[in-house]
Design a protein around this nucleic acid. Structure first.
Length: 274
DNA sequence: ATGGTGGAAGATCCA
C-alpha cells in the first residue's frame, strides 16, 4: 500500500534568532513577524526591558510561551516557544559578579528527545581600549567552557544569538572599516573559531557559501540603502543538531519595514517536532 | 565624521 501524502510530509520545526533592539519599541514588528514566520522557538536579544514590563500578553495571545531574562535599559534576552520548556537556565557560569542579562537556555521535549536552545547576546566589546573588550573575551571564554560541558551530553544543542562577531572578511560589505573594531579583531575571531571548533556547525554558512550575507545594517549613514551590512547573528549547532538541519535563511526583508530593528531574524528549519 | 541614528531612561549611556 503506497504512503499517503501526509505520511511523507517532513516533520520539521523552525528555530529563529533576532536582536530586536527594544521589545517595547518593536512590538508591532515582532507580532507581525511571529505571524508571518511562525517559528516554533524564537530567541530574542536586546529586549531592553525588565521581566515585569515585557509585553508578554500580546505574544501569548499568538500562542507563545514566554521566558525572559531581562534587565533595566540594556541587554536582555528571551525565549518564545509554541511549547513551554521543561527547564530554563539564566546564568552563564564563570563570573558570579556579572549582572548583565545576556543568556537564557531552554530545554524542550521533542519527539526525538531533549532539545537545548540558548538565546545569547554576546558583549559588543567597544571601545577596545576599555574594560569592555576584556569583558567580551572573558564572556566568550565562559561560553566556551559552558559549551564544552554541554556537548558531553551528545544532544541536539543550538546556540543562537547576536555574537557581535564578524567571522570572516566576506561577512562584511567593507571589511577594511572593521579592522580595529571589537567585532572583527583577530582575538575576537579566534575566540569564535575556538568555540566553533568544539564541533559546532554554523548553520547559515553550512547551507549558503555566497558573499553578501548580512544580518545587521547600522541606522546611520544610509547603511541599509548602501547594503553596508555585517553578519554577526549566528546559530551554532551541536553535531546532533547539525544532523537535523534542513534550511537556514536570513530574513533580510524585515530591515525594510517601518521602524525596523537594525538586525534581521536568522531562521533555521530542523527535522524535529515537539 | 571626533556616533552621522535610535532605544530607554530620565537631562546620558549604550550600540
Amino acid at each position: 500500500m503506497p504512503l499517503s501524502p501526509a505520511a511523507v510530509i517532513a516533520i520539521v520545526m523552525k528555530i529563529a534568532t533576532w536582536n530586536i533592539n527594544g521589545v517595547k519599541a518593536r512590538i508591532d514588528n515582532l507580532l507581525h513577524w511571529l505571524e508571518e514566520c511562525q517559528p516554533d522557538i524564537a530567541c530574542l536579544q536586546e529586549i531592553k526591558s525588565v521581566d515585569e514590563l515585557f509585553p508578554r500578553l500580546e505574544i501569548e495571545a499568538l500562542g507563545y510561551h514566554v521566558e525572559t531574562h531581562g534587565q533595566k535599559s540594556f541587554n536582555g534576552v528571551a525565549l518564545l516557544s509554541k511549547k513551554s520548556p521543561d527547564e530554563v537556565n539564566r546564568r552563564l557560569d564563570g563570573d558570579d559578579s556579572d549582572e548583565q542579562a545576556r543568556f537564557i537556555e531552554g530545554v524542550f521535549s521533542t519527539k526525538k528527545g531533549a532539545l537545548r536552545v540558548v538565546s545569547l547576546y554576546l558583549p559588543n566589546g567597544n571601545p577596545v581600549d576599555t574594560e569592555k573588550y576584556p569583558y567580551k573575551l572573558a564572556w566568550m571564554e565562559r561560553l566556551y567552557k559552558w559549551s564544552q560541558e554541554r556537548l558531553l551530553l551528545e544532544e541536539p544543542l543550538i546556540l543562537a544569538g547576536d555574537y557581535n562577531v564578524i567571522p570572516q572578511p566576506r561577512d562584511a560589505k567593507n571589511p577594511e572599516s572593521w579592522v580595529n573594531d571589537a567585532l572583527f579583531l583577530p582575538q575576537t575571531r579566534e575566540a569564535f573559531y575556538k568555540l566553533l571548533n568544539l564541533g559546532f556547525t554554523e548553520a547559515v554558512r553550512s547551507v549558503n557559501d555566497s558573499d553578501g550575507l548580512y544580518s545587521f545594517w547600522d541606522y546611520q549613514a544610509g547603511a541599509w540603502q548602501k547594503d553596508n551590512g555585517i553578519r554577526i547573528d549566528h546559530l551554532l549547532l551541536s553535531p546532533e543538531a547539525a544532523e537535523l538541519l534542513k534550511h537556514a535563511e536570513i530574513e533580510k526583508h524585515t530591515r525594510g519595514w517601518e521602524k525596523p530593528s537594525d538586525h534581521v531574524p536568522v531562521v533555521i528549519t530542523i527535522d524535529d517536532e515537539f
